[in-house]
Design a protein around this nucleic acid. Structure first.
Length: 287
DNA sequence: CCTTGTGTTCTCCG
DNA sequence: CCGGAGAACACAAG
């Protein structure tokens, strides 16, 4: 599942490949992926050049050189954005190589954006929850406003973090997953943060002590930073902008490990639904 | 039946 | 009766 570290990795990898390239053609392979409508988005995108890629939480915001046009992209659960360029090296009139980096479009490719230099950007999404949206500045501003601060934002202080959490009556897991309270955390990192902080995910947020909130703050920042460094977690579908898997899977201590022994105390990790999501935790290590 | 991110809708409470 | 919080539902495919 693409969460903040995965989307940030996609942002960085695509920033190195698609910026400054003019869009020659937009080919939708499924009607519900392009917003606000297939026709409007196609018209807006054709001839545009991507100038900068920003990210808020799990949402990518790509600026263009067209007036009042940005592109919002959300990968949701199974979305992938993969850039591919069929490289042809011509020497002495002969084509020496023709490397097709990826087998695309695949059956889950919902959109292909072709650039004038021959490079192509594929939007794949098995589940069809993700979208590519042509947006005005007004729309982008409205989208940005819905997000709370990010845990990796250096402007977010420990005190402000405590203020965000300690009044909430719902579970700490539901708070961590709520994008309007804190942006970018999904099911994988929520469970990892609770484990690292020694906090049971179903505890009401307002029942957490200052020390427990501080531990969530410190470990949360550490986990997200390390996950970005390791280019994200590939559990099922996630790949970066070049089709490469992330390396953070080997750092996971609880997610996906329900029924297996705790890394710390060897007791069997519990698994149950919290905040409507599958949740793994250690009933011994987490209080 | 399970998996999950988020927008929408419903319910509850003061 | 309004507003807000929180929970439940809808979506989608394998």
């Amino acid at each position: 599942m693409p969460e903040l570290p995965e989307v940030e990795t996609v942002r960085r990898s695509l920033s190195a490949t698609i910026l400054g390239k003019r869009i020659a053609a937009v080919t939708p392979h499924h009607p519900k992926v392009l917003r606000p409508s297939v026709r409007d988005a196609e018209t807006a995108l054709r001839g545009a050049t991507f100038t900068e890629i920003d990210r808020v939480g799990k949402l990518l915001i790509i600026a263009t050189d067209k007036p009042d046009l940005s592109i919002l992209i959300h990968l949701k659960m199974t979305g992938q954005l993969i850039y591919s360029h069929d490289r042809e090296i011509i020497a002495g009139g002969h084509s020496l190589t023709h490397d097709v980096v990826h087998d695309h479009p695949s059956k889950h490719t919902r959109l292909t954006i072709e650039f004038e230099d021959g490079g192509r950007l594929f939007f794949n999404d098995m589940r069809l929850f993700g979208y590519v949206e042509a947006a005005t500045e007004r729309r982008v501003d409205a989208a940005r406003k819905k997000f709370g601060p990010e845990l990796i934002d250096s402007r977010l202080t420990k005190d402000a973090w405590y203020q965000l959490l300690h009044r909430r009556k719902t579970s700490i897991k539901a708070v961590l997953l709520n994008q309007t309270i804190v942006a970018g955390i999904g099911n994988i990192y929520a469970d990892e943060m609770c484990f690292a902080a020694g906090v049971l995910p179903h505890r009401p947020a307002h029942a957490l002590s200052r020390a427990e909130c501080d531990r969530l703050f410190t470990h949360g920042k550490r986990i997200l930073a390390l996950a970005i460094e390791e280019r994200g977690t590939t559990f099922n579908h996630y790949v970066d902008g070049q089709g490469n898997k992330g390396n953070f899977l080997r750092f996971l201590r609880v997610y996906g490990r329900g029924g297996k022994p705790c890394i710390t105390c060897s007791s069997i990790l519990a698994k149950k639904k919290v905040a409507g999501r599958g949740t793994v935790y250690c009933a011994t290590c987490q209080k």
